[in-house]
Design a binder for these strands. Structure first.
Lengths: 133, 133
DNA sequence: CTGCCAATTAAAGCCAGCTTGAGGTCAAGG
DNA sequence: CCTTGACCTCAAGCTGGCTTTAATTGGCAG
């Protein structure tokens, strides 16, 4: 099993060395060992980092990501909790879609005041966060 | 036009008064005026706050949200920039979908090591953030 | 064996996005 | 008129997620 220096992992994963040490500090990843003082990482770490990057892009905190996947990169949670996470993601996807549609609408609709445009308001309500007015 | 105290806006929008003052401080919203010292808000503010909440949920910074919609709640940007924003959102939606599918996969696939499961790796690559291995 | 350069640590610093606290103001109900 | 309590301002503090800095160590090419 070929091991990688932190610099190489950083380069391949796009995650800064300081961030990698930080991830280790909070228990999100673990190095495969040390060569002297130097951390050595296995290929699995690169995949874990993909997952972490993905999760971050999805708006999850590092704690939440750590909760979805243990530091070994495998899911820690019972199936129903994983599905609950996926359901939450679906809800977030719906919100994003609403925002995206709202943006496209304001880009294309010539109405001067979108806040009063019924279609726009409907789009907002589709995100189901509209305050009661 | 009926005006609302900050407390009422907070209650209806779910945004704390301190946050509302902060939003005003950074120019994200504006009060319709003051009654004595007290800020008074119009109904439009509630809609703006929906937009802001939506944008935050979508992972945008307050600066970015302010850039999409002026403090009057109307878009400031030229059409192509709005569409560019929408395109970025679509990319984010694809990532979220990849993560969601990955979660469902690990919830349902009985394989012991998902990191080595080809299907799982493919799901990760669908999010197009996988490090080169 | 030497010297370089990447890696190490601990502690401090930084940004966003608020919240909290102290001390003060004032609109409205009794 | 007086009290009450919601509001005000300003400054400091807090969390998350790192980065930066300073001082040090040690692997490895020559």
């Amino acid at each position: 099993m070929k091991l990688l220096d932190i610099g190489e992992v950083a380069e391949r994963s796009g995650v800064a060395p300081s961030a990698l040490r930080y991830y280790e500090e909070i228990g999100l990843i673990a190095s495969a060992g040390r060569k002297g003082l130097r951390r050595q990482y296995g290929a699995a770490t690169l995949l874990q980092l993909s997952l972490i990057t993905l999760g971050k892009a999805a708006g999850f905190s590092l704690q939440e990501i750590a909760g979805m996947f243990g530091q070994d990169g495998r899911p820690d949670l019972p199936r129903d909790q994983l599905h609950a996470r996926a359901d939450a993601l679906e809800a977030q996807i719906r919100e994003l879609t609403a925002l995206k549609d709202a943006l496209r609408h304001v880009a294309d609709c010539p109405a001067p005041s979108h806040l009063e445009c019924p279609k726009f308001q409907k789009l907002l309500r589709a995100g189901s966060i509209t305050a009661e007015v």
